[in-house]
Nucleic acid binder design. Sequence first.
DNA 1: CGTCGTCTTGATCGTCTTCAATGTATGTGG
DNA 2: CCACATACATTGAAGACGATCAAGACGACG
Lengths: 247, 247
Amino acid sequence: MSQNRMTLTAAGPGQIRCRDCTIRLRAVCAHADMLALTELERIKRYRSYTPGQVIASTGEEPSVVGSLVEGVAHISTLLPDGRRQMVGLLLPSDFVGRPGRSRIDYDIVAATPVTICTFRKPDFERLLASNPAIERRLLDMTLDELDAARDWMTLLGRKSARERVASLVLMIARRDAALNGEEPTEGQHVPLRLTRQAIADYLGLTIETVSRQFSALARDALVAHGSQRTLEILDLSGLMTAAGEAV
Amino acid sequence: MSQNRMTLTAAGPGQIRCRDCTIRLRAVCAHADMLALTELERIKRYRSYTPGQVIASTGEEPSVVGSLVEGVAHISTLLPDGRRQMVGLLLPSDFVGRPGRSRIDYDIVAATPVTICTFRKPDFERLLASNPAIERRLLDMTLDELDAARDWMTLLGRKSARERVASLVLMIARRDAALNGEEPTEGQHVPLRLTRQAIADYLGLTIETVSRQFSALARDALVAHGSQRTLEILDLSGLMTAAGEAV
DNA sequence: CGTCGTCTTGATCGTCTTCAATGTATGTGG
DNA sequence: CCACATACATTGAAGACGATCAAGACGACG
C-alpha cells in the first residue's frame, strides 16, 4: 500500500470509493458513467491540507487539479502593496485548479482542514478528452462560477457596507439551507465559518467595518449573535431589504 | 431568399462564409473541423442590433446563443433601486448567452452597432454534444472570462478611484495593442469607446469621480486628452504605478 | 494567571458621493 | 446661419461613509 506516502487524515478518505463519495452527485464526476468512474478511481489520489496551508499560489504551474471533498478553501488575489481580495470560496464538490492553462494568477489557501480528490493534470486532460459528460459538467460548473462572480462584482461595485454584510449572511444561510433542499427561515442558525479578516477580504471592507455592521444588524434585531462565529436570523425579510434585494 | 426576414445591416454579414469570418480563429468555432463548420454554416443566422438596443434581459429565457462578430455590448446587473454595475464587456469573438441554463440574471445591451452570429439553442446544444472541440473551446473561453471577472473583483473590492481609472485605460490599451500582437507603448492613442456613464458603471464609481480622475491623470501628465473619447498615453510606467500594478 | 489571537468600540481623517452649476459638442427648426 | 435643445462632460462645495489609528474586551490555551 502507498498510503504512507500520502498526507491523509486519520481514517481519512484514502479508502473511499467513488460510489460512496459524499460529493459524487454534485462534483465534476456527477454524470460520469461506470467506465469513466473506474478510470477516475484508478487515477485519483486524496490530499489533505491543514488550515492556513497553501494549496496553490500565484505564478505557479500546479501539476494537479481535483475536487474539493471536505473543508473550505479561499481563492484570493494580492495587490503589490499587500491589499487582498477574496475572489472565490471553494466548498465541497467545487473544482480546484484550471485545466488547459499552466500558470494561475491567484492564491488558494485552506481555511479549515481540507481534503481534495486530486488528479495529475495530464491524466485529467486525457479523461476530459475521452469523456464529454465530464467535460460538459465542468463547463456547467464553470458557468455557474462565472454567474456567482458576476453577482459578487455587483456587491463589490455598488453595495454599501451594511448591504454587503447582510448579503453575505443571506448567501451562507441559503447555501446551508439548500444542502437540505430547504429555504432560509427565521430562527435559522447560520455558521459563518470565516474569520472577520476573511469576511473583510471577501466583502472588500476592513475588519472594523465588518464588525460594526454585524453589531448594527444585531441592534436592529435582524440577526442575533449566537456562539462564536454563528448567528441566528431574526427577521428574514428585513435582512433581505438590508441586503439590497427586492423582498 | 429569407434576408428580408432578418435585421441585416446594408451589405452586412448575411453573406459571410465561416472561412472568411473575421473572428473565425478566436471564437467558439476556432477549432471546429470542416464537418462542424459546414453544420455551423447551415444553422447560423446573423442578427444586428442598434446602439442601446437590448439583446437579452434579466429573467428572460433567451432562445438563441452566438458569437459577437462586430461591435461592443455590455453585460450589467441592476439593483432594485436602480444602481447598475457592469459585469462584463462583450467584444468581437466573445460568446453571447449561456448554454445549459434557461433564465439569465443580467442585461445584455448593444453599446455600438452590433452583429451577432446566432444559433437557436437546441441546434447549438446538439452541435456541442457532437463536437467535443467546440465544447472544449467554450470551456476555455469561459475559464478565461472567469479569470477576467476575478481580476475585476480585485479592482472593485480594493482599488481606489484613481487606480480603477488607470487600470481601465491600461486594460483597453493592452487589448487594442494585442489585436496587432503588440504591447502598449507611450504615444499610443487609446479609443475608450465608452461613455462616462458606462465607464462609471464598469468601475463601480460615479461619472463625476471618473471625470475628476481623468482630469487628474492628465494634470499629472500620465495621459493627454485626445479628441472625443480618445486619449494618449504619455507615461506608461507611471500609469502602471497609478493602476496599482507592479512596474 | 498571563499571553496570544480575534473581535469590538471609539475618535478622527480622507475619499468618494451627492447636489448643483457650468461647459462643450451635436443636431434641429425658424 | 444662428438660436436653441439635448446629451454628455467637467468642475465646485458640502456631506456621508468607510478607512485608519488606537484602546480595550473576550475567549482559548499553556
